[in-house]
């Protein structure tokens, strides 16, 4: 069984208040490493066997139509073994 992962992130130019809130909470807890934080969504889709090119194309289509809103978000599709 393989896993197809779709990562959805707000486009860089779109304000991310949740990411900003996380970024400002980190130093309060003593973590000083973060210059900035962006928060996104991750979808894990299980398929039987190795994903075919056709399946991946379908997932990309679904990511465009449903999983992301192309007006404000970008997405990346990848296969995780």
């Amino acid at each position: 069984m393989a896993k197809i992962v779709v990562d959805v992130m707000l486009k860089p130019e779109i304000l991310d208040p949740q990411g900003n809130a996380v970024a400002s909470a980190l130093p309060r807890l003593g973590f000083s490493f973060a210059k900035s934080v962006r928060q996104g969504k991750r979808f894990e889709i299980e398929v039987e066997g190795e994903p075919t090119a056709a399946q991946l194309a379908e997932v990309k289509k679904a990511a465009q139509v449903l999983l992301s809103n192309p007006v404000i978000e970008n997405f990346v599709v990848r296969v995780e073994k």
Binding site: L10, I14, L15, P17, Q18, A21, N69, V71, I72
Partner: peptide
Amino acid sequence: CESHLLPGALTRNSDL
């Protein structure tokens, strides 16, 4: 907006 009848999108209020 999600139906693309109107442009743009509504996102989280800036102060959360």
